[in-house]
Write a protein that binds this DNA or RNA. Structure first.
Length: 636
DNA sequence: GTAGGGTTAG
């Protein structure tokens, strides 16, 4: 290296002793020493990725009218790319396009690729249009650039143009353009072209197909592509596992995760992230802990750690979540937001707000999702003034415009405080259109504060937007039942039948010995159902002697009081609680997941059962967590 | 010289 640099500094400061033409016309043995060593040095600098010296040599070469070979130039371009050296890259472009050099297509493709990677799409586009000759790589590079910039139409049009120019797309082209699909019709068309030319067996194309079908909500079609797999690799597995995990089919995702391991494919960061997400959606803490063991290999992976953090907080194990959070070296806005939301959802509102305060000084800039967690903490703890303060200062302090989610939290906050008029006023002031969730929040508040007229209004708004919304019918019917307006209850039920809406059955589940045991109200399919019912009856009798009065306001149907109690008695969460008591030692927390919001009677039942049985019970409904202990619940 | 999979909200 030292010899080269000495040569370099001595010879190139002198005027040229030969020209490019003389070089070209003489045999290599007769090239004057300083010219050939200049080219040699240049090649060495490029191969050793010594950018500053390579650029110096490049200047000297231009003065001497010397040109290197295409391979060396492409090395130099790679070097610019690796260092993010945009200015140098453009300089190389100018050098190569000088009048006395005729760059080959593959070298221009390298330049094209460099501009794309630097996200200089305009430069790339100009270069692409000026190229004397475009091959499959040139077209694919541009299509890929448009795809990753979400310029869907441009990507698809360029593919059409490519075909019209008689250039055959290859697997690179298809796997690039697939990402740009936003319409199912485009995807179907591409898929059939891919099959026609026999490229569906390429693993890149296959994973791209799975991914895009899943993103467009066609999970079954994604699964079909996976199932036709004769050729597969771990990314194809990860694509399908991720698809199920993201569509909240944790069961299928975990089944595939196990099959993947059985098939001998090692799991990596992506696999484990999806596996954790699946555990999260199923509230499978114990399995999540087992996945955690495999995560240790990838301790530095931020996304994986974020997923772990989320798993522990959503599975109700805040101690584990906190310890992960504290141990994480690089925390991004997602880590902070996840931890804040986790604390808030589990009822630790003050801690969530404290963490937000430290984020302001120690962490990254909060985003709109962080603020959802903060406002949720306020609404959860009934901190009306704090909530309104954060809500009003969002724009000024963080430049975030409040969205539906933020309005939703504030609606919930006002609703819980019984300020229904203010809640309605807020809906009228919203900058965005209220959606089903907005109106349901109001409906919930009406249900708590027994405002039948406003409830009717909110339910109507929901059904205008979604005539099939089961929740609205059920809530409205419950509110009527609360006021013993049985005629109205019957009217709601008739209307449900007329529109073919069925109440989604309540389902609760609990993990025992690595298996999920799911219960549906009145379902008799569990092998131990008789024993569970027997123990449930015993527990209810003990609770009644301790003062429990079943709250029949939560019975959907117009039933005689006694029948009503019977229907309440077999609510799925009660079955799951009893099953947990039967199978868990006293010191172990009983954790239950559930698809619908917990009803008031089951909430009371869980509080009293936790006290009487001296158990810690955690129930996670679709929105928040209820930690029952000593006759109290964290949800206040 | 061109291509693929993962994390936060109601």
């Amino acid at each position: 290296m030292r010899a080269i640099s000495r040569l370099f500094s001595i010879s190139y400061s002198k005027p040229p002793s030969c020209s490019y033409t003389s070089l070209a016309s003489t045999s290599s043995s007769s090239i004057p020493a300083d010219s050939s060593s200049l080219l040699n040095d240049f090649a060495n600098f490029c191969h050793n990725r010594d950018l500053p010296r390579a650029m110096q040599a490049l200047e000297a070469m231009e003065r001497h009218k010397l040109w290197a070979d295409a391979i060396t130039y492409s090395e130099l371009i790679k070097c610019c790319l690796a260092r993010g050296a945009v200015r140098e890259g453009k300089r190389v472009h100018k050098h190569i396009f000088s009048n006395e050099y005729d760059p080959k297509t593959f070298l221009i493709n390298s330049m094209l690729n460099m501009y794309v990677k630097f996200n200089l799409l305009e430069e790339a586009q100009i270069l692409f249009e000026e190229m004397p000759e475009r091959n499959v790589v040139s077209w694919t590079t541009m299509i890929s650039a448009y795809s990753s910039s979400k310029l869907t139409e441009k990507a698809l049009n360029l593919l059409k143009l490519m075909l019209r120019n008689g250039v055959m797309p290859n697997m690179f082209t298809y796997s690039s353009v697939l990402r740009a699909c936003e319409r199912l019709s485009d995807l179907k068309q591409l898929h059939s072209s891919i099959t026609k030319v026999g490229l569906e067996s390429d693993v890149f194309v296959r994973s791209a197909l799975i991914d895009i079908y899943s993103k467009l909500g066609e999970l079954q079609e994604a699964f079909n592509v996976f199932n036709e797999m004769l050729t597969g690799d771990s990314v194809v597995w990860n694509s399908i596992i991720g698809a199920f995990a993201q569509h909240s089919d944790g069961d299928e995702a975990l089944y595939l995760y196990k099959s993947m391991r059985r098939a001998g494919f090692p799991s990596d960061q992506s696999t484990l992230t999806s596996a954790l997400r699946a555990c999260t959606s199923l509230s499978m803490l114990e399995l999540g802990r087992q996945v955690h063991v495999h995560v240790l290999k990838f301790e530095q992976d931020l996304i994986l750690n974020n997923a772990l953090l989320d798993m522990y907080s959503k599975c109700g194990s805040l101690e584990d979540a906190k310890s992960i959070f504290n141990r994480m070296a690089g925390k991004d806005v997602i880590s902070w937001s996840t931890m804040i939301a986790g604390l808030a959802q589990n009822g630790f509102s003050k801690e969530a707000l404290n963490l937000f305060e430290s984020m302001k000084t120690l962490g990254p800039k909060p985003n709109h999702i962080t603020l959802v967690g903060v406002l949720f903490a306020c609404s959860h703890a009934g901190l009306v003034n704090e909530g309104l303060y954060y809500f009003r200062s969002m724009k000024n302090l963080y430049g975030i415009d409040p969205g539906r989610e933020h309005y939703g939290c504030i609606l919930d906050l006002l609703g819980r405080a019984g300020r229904l008029d203010d809640a309605v006023k807020l809906i009228n002031e919203m900058k965005c259109e209220p959606d089903v969730v907005t109106w349901r929040t109001l409906l919930d508040a009406c249900s708590v504060h027994r405002n039948v007229d406003l409830a009717k209004f909110a339910a109507k708004e929901i059904l205008k937007l979604d005539p099939q919304d089961t929740g609205a019918y059920v809530l409205l019917s419950n509110i009527y039942a609360n006021s013993k307006r049985w005629d109205d209850v019957a009217k709601v039920r008739r209307s449900m039948r007329a529109r073919g809406v069925r109440k989604e059955p309540g389902c609760s589940w609990i993990e025992v010995n690595k298996y999920i045991h799911a219960f549906i109200s009145r379902d008799k399919s569990h092998p131990q159902i008789h024993e569970i019912n027997r123990q449930l009856n015993q527990l209810i009798s003990r609770l009644i002697s301790a003062g429990y009065v079943p709250d029949t306001n939560f019975v959907l149907q117009d039933l005689e009081e006694e029948q009503g109690e019977a229907s309440l008695k077999y609510h799925s969460e009660k079955l799951a609680i009893v099953f947990g008591i039967m199978n868990y030692p006293r010191e172990k927390t009983i954790r239950i997941g559930k698809n619908l919001r917990i009803c008031g009677d089951c909430h009371l039942f869980a509080k009293l059962a936790a006290k009487l049985e001296q158990r810690h019970i955690v129930i996670r409904d679709p929105i928040r967590y209820h930690h029952f202990q000593d006759g109290f619940c964290s949800c206040a």
